[in-house]
């Protein structure tokens, strides 16, 4: 049986599809008995869902570096 902390870590890993098969089974088993973790898992999945839905954009490091250089020129 895994602890809640371990369960949380595996749960986070599943959000990024990085949990192994045995980890997933352990988590599922834990969630059957632990309502707190089940709640956390549900919310965690929702957060992942929201992040996907929002289609967040990010500037790459290269673009940021260029911006910094431009700013430095102006100073």
């Amino acid at each position: 049986m895994i602890s809640c902390e371990e369960a949380a870590t595996i749960c986070n890993k599943t959000q990024y599809k990085e949990a192994s098969f045995s980890e997933k089974i352990q988590l599922k088993l834990h969630l059957l008995f632990c309502s707190t973790c089940a709640m956390f898992s549900k919310k965690n999945a929702k957060l992942t869902n929201l992040c996907q839905k929002a289609n967040l954009q990010n500037l790459t490091e290269k673009e940021k570096l260029k911006m910094k250089q431009e700013i430095r020129k102006k100073i």
Binding site: A8, T9, N12, K13, Q15, K43, N44, K46, L47, L50
Partner: peptide, 23 residues
Amino acid sequence: LWVMIHRARTTLMGCLNQNWFNL
């Protein structure tokens, strides 16, 4: 890394709960 991810996610859940009611 996973500890940091975990902390970030928990904070975000709480924050979005306040600002974005349907989490």
